[in-house]
Write a protein that binds this DNA or RNA. Structure first.
Lengths: 126, 126
DNA sequence: ACAACATATGCGTTTATTTGCATATATTTT
DNA sequence: AAAATATATGCAAATAAACGCATATGTTGT
């Protein structure tokens, strides 16, 4: 029961839902790209990613100085079903996130996250 | 988003999961039957039922002095998918709940919840 | 009308979660 | 080696949930 509860609890927070919805749209996204997409602080994103990782819903793989996160596809029924449910969420904020995600990913070079501040970056800290 | 979050949050608590799992097994169950099944206090069960009701996952219908609760079948994709996920939870505590539920429901007369304390009742308050 | 019963709720306390800041660790570039 | 960048984390403060008790509301049977 505890394990299931951990997974469900990991879903019950706004930022984490946004992260999952985002990862549903792109294969591998690194932390700074998520930060720019959500327009949230780096430590906030980092914390929430950790919660999702501990629940086993996402996995991160380090490549150089970046850590790319993606949905953990190695799941059983329960997790699978839960993630499917997330797909049915339709919300203005998620649509806007998706727009910003596209913009941010378009800046990649050789399909790698770019270094340094992007134009959006400073906006993230309004 | 808020509405989805409310639903997800309503799932992220042990007692509420137990209630949903229980209602997945029986059509209409009244509060005292749930109390005996979960071996939790009446006010605790009552509170949690309210949270589930506010999230729209369960509905209660009053019949005389009893209120029978059941899953809200009048759902859209998201809720439906979420409730399906709950069905995949396999846990010792849920199995035991199911045993006690059977015992308790067997005491019904004319398929109606019985009045007064049952043998189990006092145990509920150990 | 009264007693017994079924369920809900107000409120203060406890417990859990999230936030923000500062800072740590690790990697890359110069 | 120093500077810049990417990500993570310890800790205290703020916020949110859950709990327990007592009690309220409504129903039924006598």
């Amino acid at each position: 029961m505890e394990e299931y509860l951990k997974i469900i609890k990991s879903l019950s927070e706004r930022t984490r839902i946004r992260i999952l919805a985002l990862l549903n749209q792109a294969q591998e996204v690194c932390v700074s790209e998520i930060v720019d997409t959500l327009e949230e602080s780096q430590y906030k994103v980092s914390r929430h990613l950790k919660v999702l990782q501990e629940a086993g819903l996402v996995v991160g793989s380090k490549k150089g100085r970046w850590i790319y996160y993606q949905l953990n596809n190695n799941q059983v029924h329960f997790q699978d079903q839960i993630l499917k449910a997330i797909n049915y969420i339709s919300s203005d904020i998620l649509h806007k996130d998706l727009e910003r995600l596209k913009t941010r990913l378009a800046k990649r070079v050789n399909n790698q996250c770019i270094s340094g501040k992007t134009e959006n970056y400073s906006e993230s800290y309004q």
